[in-house]
Amino acid sequence: MEIAGWIVVIALFAIGMAGAVFPILPGALAIYAAFFVYGFFISFSSFGFWFWTIQTLIVIVLFVADYAVSAWGVKKYGGSKASVVGSTIGVLVGPFVIPAFGLILGPLIGAVIGELFAGANLEKALKAGLGAVVGLFTSTVVKFILQGAMIVIFLIWL
Rank of each mutant, 00 (worst) to 15 (best):
E2G: 10
P99E: 07
S43L: 11
V8D: 04
A71S: 10
W157S: 12
L12C: 05
L155Y: 09
F96R: 10
V69R: 01
V64A: 04
D66T: 09
A125M: 03
I89L: 14
S70R: 14
A111F: 03
G135E: 08
A20P: 09
L155F: 10
L108R: 09
G27L: 01
F36Y: 15
F96T: 11
L136W: 13
A34D: 02
P99T: 11
L158M: 07
F49R: 13
G135M: 05
V37R: 10
S80E: 07
A118Q: 07
A128F: 07
A28M: 11
A71P: 01
P99G: 06
D66V: 01
F144E: 09
A118S: 14
L155R: 05
G102N: 12
I113Y: 02
I24G: 14
K75D: 08
D66C: 01
L158V: 03
M150V: 06
Y77K: 15
L57F: 10
I145H: 06
G102I: 10
W72M: 10
I31Q: 00
V84I: 12
F51E: 04
L116S: 03
G119K: 04
V93H: 03
G102M: 12
G131L: 06
K124G: 07
S139G: 15
T53G: 08
L103S: 14
V152I: 15
A118M: 06
L155E: 06
A100K: 15
G102P: 08
F13G: 08
W52A: 02
I113D: 00
G19W: 00
Y32W: 08
I104E: 13
A11Y: 12
G102Y: 14
G79L: 01
A111W: 05
F44D: 12
Q55C: 06
A28N: 07
A71L: 01
G48K: 05
F13A: 05
A65F: 01
